[in-house]
């Protein structure tokens, strides 16, 4: 697994390297820890507060790792029009998978839709949604 120092070395000569660094750290470690923020701040000559501010601003970065598998369920207007809200109780009635809201996956004519990692699902109904959750 790459270390923070490895990730910093890859990006240090880029313009505006902070987001690419945070994406790589998030991907490698599942979160951006307090220690990681300290190391990144030192390398980029930023204050810890600046790095913390960026980490906390963006929905993609987590300060603590999520132990459960994550499914992103689109709750935006087009998926609402296609009935996503009826699937929410299924998500609420289980706790093994963390179901997060996402606002639009760009699959707006074939919703309700969801994403697990980079895998996308469309035309969800109760049965299909349950099957995906159970397979995770």
């Amino acid at each position: 697994m790459a270390s923070i120092a490895d990730i910093l070395a890859v990006h240090k000569d880029r313009e505006g390297p902070l987001l690419p660094i945070l994406h790589d750290v998030q991907k490698a470690f599942g979160h951006v820890s307090e220690d990681a923020m300290r190391e990144i701040a030192g390398a980029l000559n930023l204050t810890r507060a600046e790095v913390y501010g960026v980490v906390s601003f963006y929905h993609d970065f987590r300060k603590e790792a999520e132990a459960r598998p994550v499914l992103k369920l689109c709750r935006a207007e087009a998926c609402k029009a296609r009935g996503v809200e009826a699937l929410v109780p299924i998500a609420d009635n289980q706790s093994r998978v963390k179901v997060e809201a996402v606002y639009c996956l760009g699959l707006c004519a074939v919703g309700p839709s969801a994403m697990v990692g980079d895998t996308v699902y469309a035309r969800l109904d109760d049965a299909k949604f349950k099957m995906i959750l159970e397979a995770m």
């Binding site: 980029l44 960026v54 601003f57 963006y58």
Partner: peptide, 26 residues
């Protein structure tokens, strides 16, 4: 290519520029 990080407001051009610079997308 630069990849966003889940902030809708970064579709606004000035917050997108801040995000590209590695700042909060304000």
């Amino acid at each position: 290519v630069r990849v966003g990080a889940g902030a809708y407001v970064c579709g606004e051009e000035t917050s997108l520029l801040n995000s590209l610079e590695g700042k909060r997308g304000e």
